[in-house]
């Protein structure tokens, strides 16, 4: 069963084709890796998918329904959440508040309800708080819930960003280099977390430079280069593909002493 299908996604910046007709399909429950050299168009693909950029051509389908990418909030409501390559938390808000913000799209009481302090408003606030606390427990940050997000160490910030994204109840969670800057221990913890998220029924799409992590974790891998899909398949197949070795892995191997 396919959860996300992208067909012919293209995005141009000035004269540069950042994405040149990328098509791929992600199955339900998969962990799907998107790799490629710097500037290959991976983050641009994320930005198009999540509505931060408007792509020039192509369409997305989520679970068979065409995805409305005209604004990021519509994408979130459809069930796609993301994290950022350079962590973007609400630095001045507390850890708990960060996750509570993530519940925005899944709650609905407006200004009037809040001002009148209605029963529905209170019930919703309680539910939002409970769900946020639950998610903090899930990623192991419950003890730090009242600290400002900016005080967290790096690895915790990454996990908080994942908790915040999970708060939107996504069917597809898109992670932009979740292991960037992490040491081996932190990466191992992250890997366990990602596998648990998948086990709980969320499909994962991740951009990652850590080849070992990608090859060990992902069910399928797609390689982008110069905005084009080079190859797509199971990690072992991709690893052995000559075009990939030339475009991406080859450089890594060649650089090794």
């Amino acid at each position: 069963m396919t959860l996300l299908e992208a067909r012919g996604i293209a995005k141009r910046f000035g004269g540069v084709n950042a994405l040149d007709g990328v098509s791929l399909a992600i199955g339900k429950g998969q962990i799907y890796g998107l790799i490629g050299p710097n500037g290959a168009g991976k983050t641009t693909f994320f930005n198009c998918l999540t509505g931060l950029y408007r792509h020039d051509a192509g369409r997305f389908w989520l679970d068979g329904v065409e995805l409305d990418t005209r604004s990021p909030d519509r994408v979130v409501k459809s069930g796609i959440a993301r994290t950022f390559q350079n962590i973007r938390l609400f630095a001045g808000l507390s850890v708990l508040e960060n996750v509570m913000v993530g519940r925005h799209a899944r709650s609905g009481v407006g200004a009037l309800g809040a001002v009148l302090d209605t029963r529905a408003f209170r019930a919703e606030e309680t539910a939002v708080r409970a769900r946020a606390l639950e998610l903090l427990g899930y990623v192991g940050l419950q003890a730090r819930r009242d600290e400002p997000a900016r005080n967290l160490p790096y690895g915790d910030q990454r996990r908080l960003e994942i908790a915040r994204a999970l708060a939107t109840d996504p069917r597809l969670l898109a992670l932009d280099e979740p292991a960037a800057g992490m040491n081996a221990t932190e990466t191992a913890v992250l890997r366990t977390l990602l596998e648990r998220i998948r086990a709980d029924g969320v499909t994962l799409l991740l951009i990652e430079h850590d080849v070992k992590l990608v090859m060990g974790l992902c069910d399928r891998v797609a390689v982008l280069d110069f905005g084009q899909l080079v190859i797509e398949g199971e990690p072992d197949t991709v690893r052995r593909d000559p075009a990939v070795i030339a475009a991406y892995l080859g450089a890594t191997v060649g650089d090794a002493p």
Partner: peptide, 18 residues
Amino acid sequence: RAWAAIREDETAARAMGI
């Protein structure tokens, strides 16, 4: 909370469905 999120980081707020 949504206002605070916008004040802190508008892009991240958008990506959180606001």
